[in-house]
Design a protein around this nucleic acid. Structure first.
Lengths: 196, 196
DNA sequence: TGCAAACTTTGCACACTATGCAAGGATTAC
DNA sequence: GTAATCCTTGCATAGTGTGCAAAGTTTGCA
């Protein structure tokens, strides 16, 4: 369909624009940055900026990595306990995120102050959650259960990033471990006593 | 501080604007509605519209009810199992939401298609989650545990509304019961087998 | 009651956002 | 090498959101 060179250039430019956006967002809030500034910093025209992203908040978020097909497959066909298999998927996904710590930090920074950016990321996460719910449906009988599990898994990633950004000297992987332990502990408390 | 009459009028106008927004959003997407239209439908000038809400998405969301101080207090001093006490708080909160089913439905409708609106609601929910986390810290030792519990509690409300909107003949309370059962089931699965 | 202070609404001007369209430039396929 | 395709860009334009100041309301107090 699209030629490989064009594809590569597109991705490079998209990334360039995201970097320019995040860098500017370190100095002042996204609200106070104009699309002109971003475009200039990324070396393209304002019009071209809008060919890549529908708005500056989307440019800040960029295109976060989805859970890979392999890890989802591993979860689907998993042999261990459900908890262990989900944790394995999250660990794998975290490896991807660790490759771009600067971007993760920049995105987190934007999310803290910008509502529109939060909404955009949320839209992306809804998709991830849905995909994960489908996968989990092959491991549990009840759909609501799968939904709850998927929600917790996706949130664990976000929670880890938040914790990582707010804790000096903690790695993303360590943050995930802490968040995960909290989740397991919470689950133990919620399920320990019968509701009815 | 502010006189009671002025206070009441402000709330009435705010609500009027929200209703006008949600009503228009039934016919076309929020993107395609102009602030002028909303203002005209609500009987105020465009400029006044912006005195009440910073943008049309915020007008659609309005001012959702927070968990009441009484219910939070009940949870803090709760005597039953943690799960039962959290469920009680959610049930109480749902009673408040049921009073304005039309608005809940309208807001849900907007959230489905509008990212900015999602972000705005999310910002509100972050605040609710934080407040609930503080409350739960008096019931559990670990902060991450409290965070996970609060996240699940707040999400249960949102999940219930989603389920309610997509299921013919189900009440909000019933939806909450279904979502809650799914959450408890998921918790059982996550905590049943040791992670390490 | 009547008047001054406080607050609200509104119109207007203006900077910024985002999109359609068409011209021009680069890349691809053959 | 050339035609088709895709990308970038400038320009025009509808819409968003804010500051400011004038006009209108409400409030508190004499």
């Amino acid at each position: 369909m699209t030629s490989p060179l064009r594809e590569r250039r597109r991705q490079e430019t998209a990334r360039e624009i995201q970097k320019a956006t995040l860098e500017l967002a370190m100095q002042k809030s996204v609200e106070d940055i104009t699309t002109e500034e971003i475009a200039a910093a990324a070396g393209v025209s304002t019009r071209t900026f809008f060919n890549y992203y529908p708005n500056k908040e989307a440019a800040a978020i960029g295109h976060p990595p989805s859970f890979s097909e392999e890890t989802k497959d591993a979860l689907r066909k998993g042999t261990g306990s459900l908890a262990a298999d989900i944790k394995a998927l999250l660990d794998e996904h975290m490896k991807i995120l660790v490759r771009d710590e600067a971007i993760v930090r920049g995105v987190g920074n934007v999310l803290r102050t910008n509502e529109k950016a939060r909404g955009i990321l949320d839209g992306f996460l809804v998709g991830e959650r849905r995909a994960l719910t489908e996968v989990l449906c092959s491991r549990v009988e009840n759909r609501q259960t799968a939904t709850a599990l998927a929600k917790n898994a996706v949130d664990a990633i976000g929670g880890s990033i938040f914790l990582w950004e707010h804790t000096e000297g903690m790695s993303l992987h360590q943050a995930l471990d802490v968040v995960w332990d909290g989740l397991i502990d919470a689950s133990r408390l919620l399920s320990s006593s019968p509701t009815e």
